[in-house]
């Protein structure tokens, strides 16, 4: 009796819908949201305020409507900074993924719980810890009077200190370090989903380790890689503290360029417009990655 079965199924669906219903009126739930909404309101107001500022005709106050601020962004100094930002964000994303995949693999497969915990904490550290302190660490290590340069000088291997920091490479290193946990943790959870049996099957069919990594592990990790990559990109594109502290004012990523518009120039509407551009880039990347993931899900599911 297929028809009977069908009604039974639809009944069951409704039953489970019925189970989730509350008996409490909705208004009470809204009331419970109120304190948090109150807390987040200034943030929303500030965002809207900035959006409004970006289309102001006056650079110092909200006054009339104009796209002047956006038009003025098409100057070489902003475009250079935009290009630099995209370049650093992209290259740091690639490096981070290359490090995060093996790292996640090692953490997931480590059998001793205490080692796993230790590695987790170490990887988590860059995310939690004050960026200022971490940049102290890098300066101590790589700065002109840092550990490496001092050692090299003492050993007589170089005559003048090497410039390891306060250039693009230094900033890149900082970006990689601070965004590493953002990639490792999501990858760890997608790594756990790669069933041991797939790999055993591949190996049974004669695939080498490299082969099954390329043919099995990587395709299964793809959604995780896209997700982690987009988060890392978005995070690094909007970096501020790292280029400020490790770039020595020479590496003007967007965040710094926008700050400079405010601090010496008092070009508030320009800064707001620059900020909107940055937000747009980040939103695009995140939307694109969501779309890519959902597309690969559809294909995997069929």
């Amino acid at each position: 009796m297929p028809a009977h079965e069908q009604t039974l199924q639809s009944l069951m669906r409704h039953q489970s819908a019925a189970r989730v219903r509350r008996w409490r009126p909705d208004s009470a739930l809204w009331l419970l949201c109120l304190p948090a909404l109150l807390i987040i309101t200034p943030f929303l107001v500030a965002c809207l305020y900035m959006l409004r500022f970006s289309v102001s005709a006056d650079t110092g106050s909200i006054n009339g409507f104009s796209l002047q601020a956006y038009a003025e962004l098409a100057q070489p100094y902003f475009l250079r900074s935009l290009w630099l930002t995209l370049k650093l964000a992209a290259s740091s994303t690639v490096i981070v993924l290359m490090l995060a995949v093996p790292l996640a693999m090692v953490i997931v497969t480590t059998r001793s719980a205490s080692w796993r915990r230790l590695m987790t904490v170490v990887v988590l550290l860059p995310m939690i810890l004050n960026l200022l302190i971490q940049s102290y660490g890098w300066i101590l290590l790589l700065g002109p009077a840092g550990v490496i340069n001092t050692t090299l000088l003492q050993l007589g291997m170089v005559e003048r200190p090497l410039i390891l920091l306060f250039n693009e490479k230094g900033v890149l290193l900082g970006l990689v370090q601070t965004s590493l946990p953002l990639a490792v943790f999501p990858l760890m959870s997608s790594m756990r989903a790669v069933s041991q049996e797939y790999l055993e099957a591949a190996s049974g069919l004669g695939a080498s380790h490299w082969r099954s990594f390329v043919d099995i592990t990587l395709p299964l990790l793809k959604p995780g890689l896209i997700g982690a990559g987009s988060i890392v990109f978005a995070f690094n594109a909007s970096a501020f503290a790292v280029p400020l502290l490790l770039g020595g004012r020479r590496v003007r990523m967007l965040g710094l360029a926008i700050r400079d518009m405010i601090s010496p120039l008092f070009n508030w509407s320009g800064a707001a417009a620059g900020g909107m551009v940055l937000i747009l880039i980040i939103t695009l990347v995140l939307v694109l990655s969501t779309w890519l993931v959902s597309r690969s899900d559809v294909r995997g599911g069929s």
């Binding site: 965002c47 900035m50 800064a271 707001a272 940055l278 937000i279």
Partner: peptide, 16 residues
């Protein structure tokens, strides 16, 4: 607020 760049949060709140 997580997706929002920190610089922009800083600037937006400062503006306000």
């Amino acid at each position: 607020p997580l997706v929002f760049p920190l610089v922009m949060l800083g600037i937006a709140f400062l503006l306000l």
